[in-house]
Nucleic acid binder design. Structure first.
Lengths: 144, 144
DNA sequence: CCTTGAACCTCTAGTTACTAGAGGATGTAG
DNA sequence: CTACATCCTCTAGTAACTAGAGGTTCAAGG
């Protein structure tokens, strides 16, 4: 019922991206018409919508693949991923706010056209704003 | 004073990534010792810390390059850059806040722990939860 | 019915921001 | 002075697209 272009328009996912998702097996291979063009239905649309939303929330494709698999056979816990993402987003919000305030201050200060003191680096470089010990996340891999 | 490995350990940025940042000109070329190995100081460390935090906030390297330039020459006329970055950061904050709320709702609805009653897929697939009109963002580019 | 142009097809290559590995030189601890 | 960790350069691989070439199919107007 839906051409790839229509599907793209309805979901906001670009045409080449849809084909890419098919290629990597995130979307099932759709049927084709006489001329070999892809035809989609509402199921594909829902699935693609889900993928788009999840991507916007910062889920990597592998997590999405996992969630889709889970929804296909729902017997496992799956909110752990969402919780992890929630913590991550919260973490980002804190630091983005700090940078925002510093930029705001700079803009307010430099109406004359120059910036006297720029503390952008300090604001983000400051270890006090590190939420957690990054050693735990970015661990132990020195070189190779 | 600092070997690349020490710098890596202190900042949480992997050794090959540090070399990569140098290669693309985000970090200045450091001095070398007799044997040709890189030696760093605390300035490099601050700069690298800044880069790491900004990257974690999702800034592309080109924006970071601009922010670094801003802090390098605070006497230049650069409020235009600061203002543009401010707008960018503001936009990010708005979006991130929206995503945060959506995730929060997801997690709240998903305390059961199993997909049977977990609505992650539905919540994300639901069109009613679109943050904004995606047509405006993901616009008009059908194919090429 | 025929043309024309938009939308489709496959395939390859480019992008960003890394990451991994080969193959070899250097630095340091016992 | 010998191991062996860490360093060096270089090339190639990864994720998640994006762009382009070169060609086919569909649908609207004449």
């Amino acid at each position: 019922m839906l051409s790839i272009g229509k599907l793209s328009g309805l979901t906001g996912v670009k045409v080449p991206t849809i084909r890419y998702y098919e290629q990597i097996g995130l979307l099932p291979k759709p049927e084709r018409n006489e001329g070999g063009q892809r035809i989609y239905n509402n199921t594909s649309r829902e699935r693609l919508n889900f993928i788009r939303h999840a991507r916007e929330l910062g889920f990597p494709l592998e997590d999405i693949r996992e969630l889709l698999a889970l929804s296909d056979s729902p017997d496992q816990s799956c909110d752990a991923i969402a919780k992890r993402q929630l913590a991550e987003v919260e973490h980002r919000l804190v630091r983005l706010n700090a940078l925002y305030k510093e930029l705001e201050r700079m803009v307010a200060q430099c109406t004359c056209g120059t910036v006297q003191t720029c503390r952008v680096i300090q604001v983000l470089g400051d270890h006090g704003l590190c939420v957690a010990d990054h050693q735990k996340i970015m661990s132990h891999d020195i070189d190779q």
